[in-house]
Design a protein around this nucleic acid. Structure first.
Lengths: 194, 194, 194, 194
DNA sequence: CTATAAGCGAGACGGTACGTCTGGTCTTGTG
DNA sequence: CACAAGACCAGACGTACCGTCTCGCTTATAG
């Protein structure tokens, strides 16, 4: 299918796109969200400020895209992944150094700017929910979906982002165990699950 | 106990302190953390910039204090509070409009600035943990303390701050139920009784 | 005479030339030299920036051409014109609204940029000098040519451009009278006028 | 007399004023009016941009002040100066290298911006007129004051600024001679011309 | 009729400067 | 000393133009 708009003028460079997003991630890791500067990003990317502003209107927009760019493949867990694998994917995504500051900062902005809120919802919260939903389907928990999302994603965020601790295997197992229906009944009554 | 150093010269005005912190909260609600400006705070408080800088060195510091200032009484749940009440206290604390942006933004900063991290740990994370610990003691859960903290605080943060949803009674009940040892035992054995 | 090189490819549009120069004059009158932008000219002329740059390398160049374009016919006084008519031609040329800012600005630039100086000399100063010389030949003044040029052109420029006043008939008569040899002799000896 | 307003806050530094105006003059000579940059001036003066903007709102304003600053002493010819000395003062004032671009550029701007026009009138045109008037009073010319102003100031401007030529003694003598009442009386008396 | 060459509009691009806003610091005076 | 006021250096903001560069398309002449 051909592009509906023949697009006049010189086309935008894909290489430039990449350079900018890379620079954003570097600056995020190095300086954090607050101290991240469009000027600095442009400089690091070897690009004019205008070129950045031509593509993104807001620092938040830019950061969301930069983070999603690396998160996306991590979110894309294989079809037949086990609950452990799915949870691990989520943890790995949020454990990326650039995600650390970025994620919380963006959410913080979202509390005040509805445009950021929408973008965050679509590109960050949504995919996370998908992962958790796939996970819960496999586990077969009795807990309500919404609450489950808060429990699982919340635990991960709290552990990894808020407390800055590692989400190791023990954490994964414990978390899954905590939301599994067979949790104690099983262990005590020996009935056994699936 | 009197201050060991009688501190010569004109004493700092307590009214000024209050005016500044009030201004910070107002700006937080109105503009969010990123757009909050010391300059703006000073103006709104009817105070010189110097006066603000004399007391707080960092925007993060200032915000933490402003938020803790309103959070503290909420955190101080009565000795004999029930788990529900304790959880509600935590939710209410984080549901304050000024806490919305502030909390996440500060944590985001903490990821990059160790001084902020420490202050956040002492004044925000710590008290939260206390609440959750008191809560778990009453519930008598079998879940490991660390994980429990992530589960409970995480769920609340995710629900209230990340998703911006209400933490109503159903949520409180569901959450407590999810981490209670009797959860399924109950359902299976029919013994029940909270 | 045809161009020696028949120049292949699509020829430049004369209409485009006109549109650009018209736009330049309009912008000059409206915004002055300093605030005139190539971007704005191109926009007003409904032309791509490239098209302007293909013809003129410098803002000064462009402006000189635009002004000369309207000045030329005014400079071209008939062979047998009287001194009054010649002077009037000069005044009329410089009184054109677009000449107001342009002339002085270009001269100001010339003080610093030799290329502009040359162009100004050839296309602005030179023709003026011609007019004044023709004028003095008819009047038969005894004043040195160089000084006369400064006196006459200077007076016109000062009156019209610097002070922004009208160069009316009284001014023309007075000026001619001041540089005429018979000036006072006349008045005293009663010999008679022009 | 003490300042009526006790002026609170830190007072402006006079040294900074001087540094800025010096920088302006340097930039004028080096780059001309058009290429003069507030950013560049601030840099050369070793001063923050804000500090410049706090004192002058417009590039034209700044340049007028910078030029007047050096012109003023030149304009202040002694009470008992001869016409030659007065004229020389005017020529010297306009011959200052920084005056070259600045004067014409400011007048060019004045054609479009009334605020600049007023400032130019008060601080540049006015003082010049004074000089010429004092001159004509001594010479006792019969030429109308307005025309005389155009003739004398115009000739100087044309010679020095427009044509960029030196205003030497011969020029001064010739100019004075041309506007003196005795000019041709002499010539008629049989003495002969220059 | 096709090839070649330039003109042309559109818009991306690296830059520079704009004029403004804040961050922190400092220097005044007054209380 | 605290405090208000405001100057000051520093530097990022988002915008406007600069002059250059691709694009795709049009319009001419040359073979």
């Amino acid at each position: 299918v051909t592009s509906p708009t023949p697009r006049r003028g010189r086309p935008r460079s894909a290489a430039t796109d990449r350079a900018i997003l890379d620079a954003v991630r570097a600056q995020l890791v190095e300086h954090g969200y607050t101290s991240l500067t469009i000027e600095g990003v442009a400089a690091k990317a070897g690009v004019a400020k205008t070129t950045v502003y031509r593509r993104w209107t807001t620092k938040a927009d830019l950061v969301v895209d930069a983070v999603v760019d690396t998160l996306a493949p991590v979110f894309a867990a294989p079809e037949d992944a086990s609950p452990e694998e799915l949870l691990r994917a989520l943890i790995d995504a949020l454990s990326l150094p650039e995600a650390r500051t970025a994620f919380l900062a963006v959410i913080s902005e979202a509390a005040v700017d509805p445009l950021v809120a929408e973008r965050a919802e679509v590109r960050l919260i949504g995919p996370s929910r998908l992962l958790v939903d796939r996970c819960s389907a496999k586990v077969g928990t009795t807990i309500d979906g919404d609450l489950l999302f808060d429990l699982v994603a919340g635990a991960v965020i709290h552990r990894v982002l808020v407390r800055g601790q590692q989400g190791d295997d023990a954490f994964v197992t414990g978390l899954l165990d905590a939301v599994s229906p067979q949790r104690h009944g099983l262990a005590e009554g020996g009935v056994g699950g699936s």
